[in-house]
Design a protein around this nucleic acid. Structure first.
Lengths: 238, 238
DNA sequence: CGGCTCAAGTGGTCCGACCACTGCGATGAC
DNA sequence: GTCATCGCAGTGGTCGGACCACTTGAGCCG
Protein backbone atom coordinates (compact mmCIF):
# COMPACT_ATOMS: atom_id res chain seq x y z
CA UNK A 1 0.00 0.00 0.00
CA UNK A 2 1.28 3.39 -0.90
CA UNK A 3 0.23 6.79 0.30
CA UNK A 4 0.10 9.35 -2.41
CA UNK A 5 2.36 12.35 -1.99
CA UNK A 6 0.14 15.28 -1.03
CA UNK A 7 2.20 17.99 -2.66
CA UNK A 8 5.04 18.06 -5.08
CA UNK A 9 6.14 21.66 -5.18
CA UNK A 10 8.03 21.34 -1.90
CA UNK A 11 9.12 17.91 -0.76
CA UNK A 12 9.50 18.38 3.00
CA UNK A 13 11.14 15.02 3.41
CA UNK A 14 12.90 14.82 6.72
CA UNK A 15 15.04 17.52 8.23
CA UNK A 16 16.64 20.38 6.37
CA UNK A 17 20.02 18.88 7.13
CA UNK A 18 18.97 15.61 5.54
CA UNK A 19 17.79 17.49 2.50
CA UNK A 20 21.09 19.31 2.29
CA UNK A 21 22.94 16.00 2.39
CA UNK A 22 20.85 14.69 -0.47
CA UNK A 23 21.31 17.89 -2.45
CA UNK A 24 25.08 17.74 -2.24
CA UNK A 25 25.11 14.03 -2.98
CA UNK A 26 22.95 14.71 -6.01
CA UNK A 27 25.30 17.46 -7.19
CA UNK A 28 28.16 14.98 -7.13
CA UNK A 29 26.07 12.25 -8.69
CA UNK A 30 25.00 14.56 -11.49
CA UNK A 31 28.57 15.55 -12.18
CA UNK A 32 28.18 19.15 -11.06
CA UNK A 33 30.96 18.53 -8.56
CA UNK A 34 34.03 16.66 -9.75
CA UNK A 35 36.34 14.62 -7.52
CA UNK A 36 38.97 16.85 -5.95
CA UNK A 37 36.99 19.98 -6.67
CA UNK A 38 36.63 22.70 -4.07
CA UNK A 39 33.13 23.53 -2.84
CA UNK A 40 31.84 26.99 -2.01
CA UNK A 41 32.36 28.06 1.58
CA UNK A 42 30.05 26.81 4.30
CA UNK A 43 28.51 30.24 4.50
CA UNK A 44 27.85 30.40 0.78
CA UNK A 45 26.49 26.87 0.62
CA UNK A 46 24.14 27.61 3.49
CA UNK A 47 22.91 30.72 1.72
CA UNK A 48 22.42 28.85 -1.56
CA UNK A 49 20.24 26.19 0.03
CA UNK A 50 18.53 28.73 2.27
CA UNK A 51 19.52 27.08 5.53
CA UNK A 52 21.63 28.13 8.48
CA UNK A 53 25.34 27.55 8.63
CA UNK A 54 24.85 25.20 11.59
CA UNK A 55 22.61 22.87 9.60
CA UNK A 56 24.94 23.05 6.63
CA UNK A 57 27.86 22.12 8.83
CA UNK A 58 26.01 19.03 10.04
CA UNK A 59 25.39 18.01 6.44
CA UNK A 60 29.06 18.53 5.59
CA UNK A 61 30.15 16.59 8.66
CA UNK A 62 27.88 13.71 7.63
CA UNK A 63 29.32 13.60 4.13
CA UNK A 64 32.80 13.86 5.61
CA UNK A 65 32.45 10.71 7.71
CA UNK A 66 31.00 8.96 4.67
CA UNK A 67 34.22 9.69 2.82
CA UNK A 68 32.54 11.86 0.21
CA UNK A 69 33.83 15.26 1.32
CA UNK A 70 37.02 16.39 3.00
CA UNK A 71 37.25 19.59 5.05
CA UNK A 72 40.63 21.29 5.34
CA UNK A 73 40.80 23.79 8.15
CA UNK A 74 41.53 27.25 6.83
CA UNK A 75 41.46 26.13 3.23
CA UNK A 76 38.06 24.88 2.19
CA UNK A 77 35.86 21.87 1.55
CA UNK A 78 36.78 19.46 -1.20
CA UNK A 79 35.22 16.45 -2.88
CA UNK A 80 37.36 13.38 -2.27
CA UNK A 81 38.66 11.27 -5.14
CA UNK A 82 35.64 9.06 -4.47
CA UNK A 83 37.95 6.07 -4.69
CA UNK A 84 36.79 2.72 -3.37
CA UNK A 85 39.03 3.26 -0.36
CA UNK A 86 37.54 6.67 0.39
CA UNK A 87 33.95 5.49 0.28
CA UNK A 88 34.44 2.13 1.97
CA UNK A 89 36.42 3.42 4.91
CA UNK A 90 33.25 3.44 6.96
CA UNK A 91 33.07 -0.29 6.47
CA UNK A 92 35.53 -0.60 9.32
CA UNK A 93 32.90 0.77 11.69
CA UNK A 94 30.75 -2.26 11.01
CA UNK A 95 33.57 -4.59 11.95
CA UNK A 96 34.41 -2.56 15.02
CA UNK A 97 30.88 -2.66 16.41
CA UNK A 98 30.09 -6.25 15.52
CA UNK A 99 29.81 -8.95 18.13
CA UNK A 100 29.04 -12.61 18.37
CA UNK A 101 27.26 -14.07 15.39
CA UNK A 102 27.97 -11.10 13.17
CA UNK A 103 31.70 -11.63 13.54
CA UNK A 104 31.26 -15.13 12.18
CA UNK A 105 29.19 -13.80 9.30
CA UNK A 106 31.85 -11.22 8.51
CA UNK A 107 34.48 -13.91 8.47
CA UNK A 108 32.32 -15.96 6.14
CA UNK A 109 32.06 -12.99 3.78
CA UNK A 110 35.78 -12.53 4.06
CA UNK A 111 36.40 -16.19 3.29
CA UNK A 112 34.28 -15.98 0.16
CA UNK A 113 35.91 -12.81 -1.11
CA UNK A 114 39.42 -13.61 -0.02
CA UNK A 115 39.46 -17.03 -1.63
CA UNK A 116 38.28 -15.54 -4.91
CA UNK A 117 40.79 -12.73 -4.60
CA UNK A 118 43.58 -15.27 -4.12
CA UNK A 119 42.45 -17.17 -7.20
CA UNK A 120 42.41 -14.00 -9.28
CA UNK A 121 45.76 -12.95 -7.90
CA UNK A 122 47.32 -16.29 -8.82
CA UNK A 123 46.44 -15.62 -12.42
CA UNK A 124 47.32 -11.94 -12.57
CA UNK A 125 49.99 -11.17 -10.01
CA UNK A 126 53.09 -9.39 -11.29
CA UNK A 127 56.64 -10.17 -10.13
CA UNK A 128 56.74 -6.90 -8.22
CA UNK A 129 53.51 -7.66 -6.40
CA UNK A 130 54.70 -11.17 -5.68
CA UNK A 131 57.91 -9.83 -4.21
CA UNK A 132 55.84 -7.60 -1.92
CA UNK A 133 53.84 -10.59 -0.74
CA UNK A 134 57.04 -12.54 -0.10
CA UNK A 135 58.51 -9.64 1.83
CA UNK A 136 55.62 -9.55 4.29
CA UNK A 137 55.63 -13.33 4.56
CA UNK A 138 59.31 -13.32 5.48
CA UNK A 139 58.90 -10.45 7.92
CA UNK A 140 56.03 -12.26 9.55
CA UNK A 141 58.16 -15.33 10.13
CA UNK A 142 61.15 -13.37 11.35
CA UNK A 143 59.61 -11.98 14.53
CA UNK A 144 57.69 -13.09 17.57
CA UNK A 145 56.16 -9.72 18.39
CA UNK A 146 52.39 -10.22 18.02
CA UNK A 147 51.90 -6.60 17.02
CA UNK A 148 54.43 -6.84 14.22
CA UNK A 149 53.09 -10.17 13.08
CA UNK A 150 49.60 -8.73 12.90
CA UNK A 151 50.80 -5.75 10.88
CA UNK A 152 52.58 -7.91 8.32
CA UNK A 153 49.70 -10.34 8.27
CA UNK A 154 47.37 -7.53 7.31
CA UNK A 155 49.81 -6.28 4.67
CA UNK A 156 50.22 -9.82 3.31
CA UNK A 157 46.53 -10.16 2.64
CA UNK A 158 46.23 -6.59 1.43
CA UNK A 159 48.92 -7.19 -1.16
CA UNK A 160 47.10 -10.26 -2.45
CA UNK A 161 43.77 -8.45 -2.60
CA UNK A 162 45.42 -5.61 -4.46
CA UNK A 163 46.97 -8.04 -6.95
CA UNK A 164 43.53 -9.42 -7.71
CA UNK A 165 42.86 -6.26 -9.70
CA UNK A 166 39.57 -5.27 -8.08
CA UNK A 167 40.02 -2.17 -5.95
CA UNK A 168 36.48 -2.36 -4.63
CA UNK A 169 36.91 -5.90 -3.39
CA UNK A 170 40.25 -4.96 -1.85
CA UNK A 171 38.65 -2.04 -0.02
CA UNK A 172 35.88 -4.24 1.36
CA UNK A 173 38.41 -6.81 2.55
CA UNK A 174 40.39 -4.01 4.12
CA UNK A 175 37.33 -3.03 6.13
CA UNK A 176 36.50 -6.58 7.14
CA UNK A 177 40.09 -7.03 8.26
CA UNK A 178 40.22 -3.75 10.15
CA UNK A 179 42.89 -3.57 12.77
CA UNK A 180 40.59 -3.59 15.77
CA UNK A 181 38.59 -6.46 14.31
CA UNK A 182 41.55 -8.73 13.84
CA UNK A 183 43.16 -7.71 17.08
CA UNK A 184 40.02 -8.75 18.92
CA UNK A 185 39.59 -12.09 17.21
CA UNK A 186 43.26 -12.98 16.93
CA UNK A 187 44.01 -12.26 20.52
CA UNK A 188 42.18 -15.39 21.53
CA UNK A 189 42.98 -17.39 18.44
CA UNK A 190 46.72 -17.00 18.69
CA UNK A 191 46.70 -17.72 22.38
CA UNK A 192 45.95 -21.28 21.50
CA UNK A 193 49.29 -21.64 19.76
CA UNK A 194 48.02 -21.19 16.25
CA UNK A 195 51.12 -19.33 15.12
CA UNK A 196 52.67 -22.36 13.47
CA UNK A 197 49.46 -23.27 11.71
CA UNK A 198 49.01 -19.71 10.49
CA UNK A 199 52.52 -19.68 9.07
CA UNK A 200 51.95 -22.97 7.28
CA UNK A 201 48.73 -21.66 5.76
CA UNK A 202 50.34 -18.44 4.62
CA UNK A 203 53.13 -20.42 3.05
CA UNK A 204 50.59 -22.56 1.22
CA UNK A 205 48.88 -19.49 -0.20
CA UNK A 206 52.23 -18.13 -1.31
CA UNK A 207 53.17 -21.42 -2.99
CA UNK A 208 49.94 -21.39 -4.95
CA UNK A 209 50.56 -17.83 -6.10
CA UNK A 210 54.10 -18.75 -7.09
CA UNK A 211 52.80 -21.71 -9.07
CA UNK A 212 50.16 -19.46 -10.62
CA UNK A 213 47.56 -22.03 -9.65
CA UNK A 214 44.21 -20.27 -9.11
CA UNK A 215 42.35 -23.24 -7.71
CA UNK A 216 45.10 -24.09 -5.27
CA UNK A 217 45.21 -20.46 -4.16
CA UNK A 218 41.44 -20.40 -3.72
CA UNK A 219 41.54 -23.54 -1.61
CA UNK A 220 44.46 -22.37 0.50
CA UNK A 221 42.91 -18.98 1.20
CA UNK A 222 39.52 -20.51 1.98
CA UNK A 223 41.11 -22.98 4.35
CA UNK A 224 43.12 -20.22 6.03
CA UNK A 225 40.16 -18.00 6.76
CA UNK A 226 37.99 -21.03 7.41
CA UNK A 227 40.26 -22.12 10.23
CA UNK A 228 39.72 -18.88 12.09
CA UNK A 229 36.06 -18.92 11.20
CA UNK A 230 35.50 -22.35 12.69
CA UNK A 231 37.39 -21.45 15.83
CA UNK A 232 35.32 -18.29 16.25
CA UNK A 233 32.11 -20.16 15.56
CA UNK A 234 32.94 -22.51 18.42
CA UNK A 235 33.70 -19.57 20.70
CA UNK A 236 30.38 -17.91 19.95
CA UNK A 237 28.39 -21.07 20.51
CA UNK A 238 29.89 -21.44 23.94
CA UNK B 1 60.27 31.78 17.30
CA UNK B 2 58.42 30.42 20.29
CA UNK B 3 58.96 27.41 22.45
CA UNK B 4 57.16 24.13 22.01
CA UNK B 5 53.40 23.94 22.45
CA UNK B 6 52.62 23.29 26.10
CA UNK B 7 49.72 20.89 25.60
CA UNK B 8 50.42 17.48 27.03
CA UNK B 9 47.75 16.62 29.56
CA UNK B 10 45.10 16.29 26.87
CA UNK B 11 45.84 14.58 23.58
CA UNK B 12 43.98 16.88 21.17
CA UNK B 13 43.81 14.48 18.28
CA UNK B 14 41.77 16.07 15.55
CA UNK B 15 38.70 18.17 16.13
CA UNK B 16 36.55 18.03 19.23
CA UNK B 17 33.70 16.70 17.15
CA UNK B 18 35.86 13.85 15.90
CA UNK B 19 36.85 13.06 19.45
CA UNK B 20 33.20 13.04 20.49
CA UNK B 21 32.41 10.58 17.70
CA UNK B 22 35.17 8.27 18.89
CA UNK B 23 34.07 8.58 22.49
CA UNK B 24 30.50 7.56 21.73
CA UNK B 25 31.65 4.76 19.45
CA UNK B 26 33.92 3.54 22.24
CA UNK B 27 31.06 3.65 24.73
CA UNK B 28 29.05 1.37 22.46
CA UNK B 29 32.03 -0.83 21.74
CA UNK B 30 32.75 -1.22 25.43
CA UNK B 31 29.19 -2.16 26.13
CA UNK B 32 28.37 0.96 28.14
CA UNK B 33 25.59 1.64 25.67
CA UNK B 34 23.38 -1.26 24.65
CA UNK B 35 21.45 -1.51 21.36
CA UNK B 36 18.11 0.24 21.66
CA UNK B 37 19.17 2.16 24.72
CA UNK B 38 18.38 5.84 25.08
CA UNK B 39 21.28 8.25 25.38
CA UNK B 40 21.38 11.33 27.58
CA UNK B 41 20.09 14.50 25.97
CA UNK B 42 22.26 16.44 23.56
CA UNK B 43 22.70 19.11 26.20
CA UNK B 44 23.79 16.62 28.84
CA UNK B 45 26.11 14.78 26.50
CA UNK B 46 27.75 18.02 25.48
CA UNK B 47 28.25 18.93 29.12
CA UNK B 48 29.69 15.51 29.93
CA UNK B 49 32.32 15.74 27.20
CA UNK B 50 32.91 19.41 27.88
CA UNK B 51 31.98 20.57 24.39
CA UNK B 52 29.27 22.77 22.96
CA UNK B 53 25.92 21.44 21.91
CA UNK B 54 26.69 22.38 18.30
CA UNK B 55 29.76 20.16 18.18
CA UNK B 56 27.89 17.38 19.92
CA UNK B 57 25.10 17.64 17.38
CA UNK B 58 27.59 17.21 14.55
CA UNK B 59 28.96 14.10 16.23
CA UNK B 60 25.45 12.72 16.68
CA UNK B 61 24.58 13.50 13.08
CA UNK B 62 27.70 11.68 11.92
CA UNK B 63 26.83 8.59 13.92
CA UNK B 64 23.27 8.84 12.67
CA UNK B 65 24.23 8.61 9.01
CA UNK B 66 26.51 5.71 9.89
CA UNK B 67 23.48 3.84 11.21
CA UNK B 68 24.81 3.70 14.76
CA UNK B 69 22.45 6.21 16.39
CA UNK B 70 18.88 7.19 15.72
CA UNK B 71 17.44 10.55 16.72
CA UNK B 72 13.71 10.81 17.34
CA UNK B 73 12.41 14.33 17.34
CA UNK B 74 10.93 15.22 20.70
CA UNK B 75 11.81 11.89 22.23
CA UNK B 76 15.55 11.37 22.42
CA UNK B 77 18.59 9.74 20.89
CA UNK B 78 18.80 5.96 20.77
CA UNK B 79 21.37 3.37 19.84
CA UNK B 80 20.13 1.38 16.87
CA UNK B 81 19.87 -2.40 17.00
CA UNK B 82 23.29 -2.37 15.32
CA UNK B 83 21.96 -4.99 12.93
CA UNK B 84 23.82 -5.68 9.72
CA UNK B 85 21.16 -3.74 7.87
CA UNK B 86 21.51 -0.71 10.12
CA UNK B 87 25.26 -0.48 9.78
CA UNK B 88 25.52 -1.38 6.10
CA UNK B 89 22.87 1.03 4.91
CA UNK B 90 25.61 3.48 3.98
CA UNK B 91 26.90 0.91 1.54
CA UNK B 92 24.29 2.17 -0.88
CA UNK B 93 26.08 5.50 -1.05
CA UNK B 94 29.06 3.76 -2.57
CA UNK B 95 26.93 2.26 -5.28
CA UNK B 96 25.16 5.56 -5.89
CA UNK B 97 28.36 7.53 -6.42
CA UNK B 98 30.22 4.90 -8.42
CA UNK B 99 30.91 5.29 -12.10
CA UNK B 100 32.63 3.45 -14.90
CA UNK B 101 35.12 0.85 -13.79
CA UNK B 102 33.92 0.80 -10.20
CA UNK B 103 30.45 -0.27 -11.33
CA UNK B 104 32.02 -3.29 -13.01
CA UNK B 105 33.99 -4.05 -9.87
CA UNK B 106 30.84 -3.82 -7.76
CA UNK B 107 29.09 -6.22 -10.08
CA UNK B 108 32.01 -8.60 -9.81
CA UNK B 109 31.73 -8.49 -6.02
CA UNK B 110 28.02 -9.04 -6.34
CA UNK B 111 28.56 -12.00 -8.64
CA UNK B 112 30.93 -13.61 -6.17
CA UNK B 113 28.66 -13.10 -3.19
CA UNK B 114 25.39 -13.75 -4.95
CA UNK B 115 26.52 -17.05 -6.45
CA UNK B 116 27.66 -18.25 -3.05
CA UNK B 117 24.44 -17.02 -1.47
CA UNK B 118 22.42 -18.96 -4.03
CA UNK B 119 24.42 -22.11 -3.30
CA UNK B 120 23.87 -21.74 0.43
CA UNK B 121 20.19 -21.00 -0.12
CA UNK B 122 19.76 -24.14 -2.20
CA UNK B 123 20.88 -26.18 0.77
CA UNK B 124 19.05 -24.32 3.48
CA UNK B 125 15.95 -22.68 2.06
CA UNK B 126 12.69 -23.42 3.82
CA UNK B 127 9.38 -24.01 2.05
CA UNK B 128 8.12 -20.65 3.24
CA UNK B 129 11.16 -18.84 1.88
CA UNK B 130 10.92 -20.77 -1.37
CA UNK B 131 7.30 -19.73 -1.72
CA UNK B 132 8.35 -16.11 -1.29
CA UNK B 133 10.92 -16.48 -4.05
CA UNK B 134 8.34 -18.07 -6.31
CA UNK B 135 5.89 -15.28 -5.60
CA UNK B 136 8.28 -12.59 -6.78
CA UNK B 137 9.28 -14.69 -9.78
CA UNK B 138 5.65 -15.01 -10.83
CA UNK B 139 4.93 -11.34 -10.23
CA UNK B 140 7.96 -10.43 -12.28
CA UNK B 141 6.69 -12.46 -15.20
CA UNK B 142 3.15 -11.17 -14.91
CA UNK B 143 3.81 -7.55 -15.77
CA UNK B 144 5.53 -5.40 -18.34
CA UNK B 145 5.97 -2.34 -16.16
CA UNK B 146 9.74 -1.86 -15.81
CA UNK B 147 9.35 -0.30 -12.39
CA UNK B 148 7.37 -3.22 -11.09
CA UNK B 149 9.73 -5.72 -12.67
CA UNK B 150 12.68 -4.01 -11.03
CA UNK B 151 10.98 -4.05 -7.64
CA UNK B 152 10.20 -7.76 -7.79
CA UNK B 153 13.63 -8.47 -9.22
CA UNK B 154 15.20 -6.84 -6.17
CA UNK B 155 12.88 -8.72 -3.85
CA UNK B 156 13.61 -11.99 -5.66
CA UNK B 157 17.33 -11.67 -5.00
CA UNK B 158 16.78 -10.34 -1.49
CA UNK B 159 14.71 -13.39 -0.62
CA UNK B 160 17.47 -15.69 -1.84
CA UNK B 161 20.16 -13.79 0.04
CA UNK B 162 18.04 -13.92 3.14
CA UNK B 163 17.57 -17.66 2.78
CA UNK B 164 21.34 -18.11 2.68
CA UNK B 165 21.35 -17.50 6.43
CA UNK B 166 24.00 -14.77 6.51
CA UNK B 167 22.42 -11.44 7.36
CA UNK B 168 25.68 -9.57 6.83
CA UNK B 169 26.09 -10.92 3.33
CA UNK B 170 22.46 -10.14 2.58
CA UNK B 171 22.94 -6.55 3.76
CA UNK B 172 26.00 -6.08 1.58
CA UNK B 173 24.15 -7.45 -1.42
CA UNK B 174 21.27 -5.14 -0.61
CA UNK B 175 23.64 -2.19 -0.80
CA UNK B 176 25.30 -3.36 -4.00
CA UNK B 177 21.87 -3.80 -5.52
CA UNK B 178 20.58 -0.45 -4.34
CA UNK B 179 17.65 0.87 -6.25
CA UNK B 180 19.45 3.74 -7.93
CA UNK B 181 22.35 1.49 -8.88
CA UNK B 182 20.22 -1.06 -10.62
CA UNK B 183 17.98 1.53 -12.18
CA UNK B 184 21.00 3.15 -13.76
CA UNK B 185 22.55 -0.02 -15.09
CA UNK B 186 19.35 -1.78 -16.05
CA UNK B 187 17.96 1.14 -17.94
CA UNK B 188 20.46 0.48 -20.69
CA UNK B 189 20.63 -3.26 -20.27
CA UNK B 190 16.93 -3.88 -20.61
CA UNK B 191 16.65 -1.55 -23.56
CA UNK B 192 18.47 -4.17 -25.54
CA UNK B 193 15.61 -6.60 -25.09
CA UNK B 194 17.15 -8.61 -22.31
CA UNK B 195 13.83 -9.18 -20.56
CA UNK B 196 13.42 -12.68 -21.97
CA UNK B 197 16.95 -13.65 -21.06
CA UNK B 198 16.56 -12.28 -17.55
CA UNK B 199 13.39 -14.30 -17.05
CA UNK B 200 15.09 -17.47 -18.27
CA UNK B 201 17.99 -16.92 -15.90
CA UNK B 202 15.70 -16.27 -12.95
CA UNK B 203 13.81 -19.41 -13.77
CA UNK B 204 17.05 -21.37 -13.86
CA UNK B 205 18.02 -20.09 -10.41
CA UNK B 206 14.60 -21.02 -9.09
CA UNK B 207 14.83 -24.53 -10.58
CA UNK B 208 18.17 -25.07 -8.87
CA UNK B 209 16.72 -23.95 -5.54
CA UNK B 210 13.74 -26.22 -6.03
CA UNK B 211 16.06 -29.15 -6.78
CA UNK B 212 18.16 -28.19 -3.75
CA UNK B 213 21.21 -28.31 -5.98
CA UNK B 214 23.84 -25.90 -4.59
CA UNK B 215 26.26 -26.14 -7.48
CA UNK B 216 23.56 -25.59 -10.05
CA UNK B 217 22.31 -22.61 -8.09
CA UNK B 218 25.81 -21.20 -7.84
CA UNK B 219 26.33 -21.55 -11.57
CA UNK B 220 22.96 -20.08 -12.47
CA UNK B 221 23.40 -17.07 -10.20
CA UNK B 222 26.94 -16.46 -11.40
CA UNK B 223 25.81 -16.63 -15.00
CA UNK B 224 22.91 -14.28 -14.29
CA UNK B 225 25.02 -11.56 -12.73
CA UNK B 226 27.85 -12.28 -15.14
CA UNK B 227 25.63 -11.48 -18.09
CA UNK B 228 24.99 -7.99 -16.84
CA UNK B 229 28.61 -7.65 -15.81
CA UNK B 230 29.89 -8.49 -19.25
CA UNK B 231 27.43 -6.11 -20.87
CA UNK B 232 28.47 -3.31 -18.54
CA UNK B 233 32.14 -4.06 -19.08
CA UNK B 234 31.63 -3.61 -22.79
CA UNK B 235 29.80 -0.32 -22.19
CA UNK B 236 32.59 1.07 -20.05
CA UNK B 237 35.28 0.13 -22.53
CA UNK B 238 33.48 2.02 -25.27
C1' DC C 1 65.42 38.35 -6.10
C1' DG C 2 64.28 35.62 -2.03
C1' DG C 3 62.52 35.17 2.37
C1' DC C 4 59.35 37.11 5.74
C1' DT C 5 55.29 39.23 7.65
C1' DC C 6 50.70 39.76 8.12
C1' DA C 7 45.97 40.29 6.89
C1' DA C 8 42.00 38.29 4.60
C1' DG C 9 39.44 34.23 4.17
C1' DT C 10 37.99 29.69 5.70
C1' DG C 11 36.69 25.95 8.63
C1' DG C 12 36.11 24.96 13.91
C1' DT C 13 33.87 26.07 18.16
C1' DC C 14 30.83 28.16 21.22
C1' DC C 15 26.61 30.54 22.85
C1' DG C 16 21.79 31.65 23.34
C1' DA C 17 17.38 31.82 21.57
C1' DC C 18 13.38 29.90 19.58
C1' DC C 19 10.59 26.31 17.02
C1' DA C 20 8.42 21.55 16.30
C1' DC C 21 7.43 17.48 18.09
C1' DT C 22 6.77 13.72 21.67
C1' DG C 23 5.33 11.77 25.90
C1' DC C 24 2.76 11.72 29.84
C1' DG C 25 0.31 13.33 33.66
C1' DA C 26 -3.74 16.15 34.89
C1' DT C 27 -8.26 16.92 33.82
C1' DG C 28 -12.87 16.11 32.97
C1' DA C 29 -16.80 13.65 30.59
C1' DC C 30 -19.27 9.41 30.71
C1' DG D 1 -13.92 3.41 37.42
C1' DT D 2 -12.76 4.07 32.53
C1' DC D 3 -11.37 6.55 28.85
C1' DA D 4 -10.64 10.43 25.81
C1' DT D 5 -8.77 15.07 25.78
C1' DC D 6 -5.84 18.78 26.88
C1' DG D 7 -1.77 21.00 28.17
C1' DC D 8 2.82 21.28 29.73
C1' DA D 9 7.56 19.99 30.33
C1' DG D 10 11.31 18.02 27.90
C1' DT D 11 13.69 16.86 23.71
C1' DG D 12 15.65 17.22 19.17
C1' DG D 13 15.78 20.73 15.10
C1' DT D 14 16.94 25.26 13.38
C1' DC D 15 18.72 29.71 13.41
C1' DG D 16 21.96 33.79 13.83
C1' DG D 17 25.94 35.73 15.53
C1' DA D 18 30.38 35.90 17.65
C1' DC D 19 34.97 34.53 18.12
C1' DC D 20 39.02 31.26 17.53
C1' DA D 21 42.54 28.44 14.74
C1' DC D 22 44.50 27.70 10.62
C1' DT D 23 45.83 28.35 5.63
C1' DT D 24 46.98 31.02 1.93
C1' DG D 25 48.95 34.44 -0.78
C1' DA D 26 49.92 39.21 -1.64
C1' DG D 27 52.96 42.63 -0.36
C1' DC D 28 56.85 44.19 2.19
C1' DC D 29 61.62 44.16 3.69
C1' DG D 30 66.36 42.89 3.38
Amino acid sequence: MEDTPPSETAAPKGTVTQRAIERIKAMIGDGLLEPGQRLPTERDLAAQLGISRSSMREAIRALTVLGVLEARHGSGIYVTQLSAGDLLETFGVVADLSRGTRLVELLEVRRILESTAAALAAARITPEQLALVEGHLAAMNATDDPEEILAHDLAFHRAIASAAGNETMAAILEGVSSRTFRARVWRGYQEEGAFARTRREHAAIHRALLARDPEAARAAAAAHVGEVEQWLRAQVNT
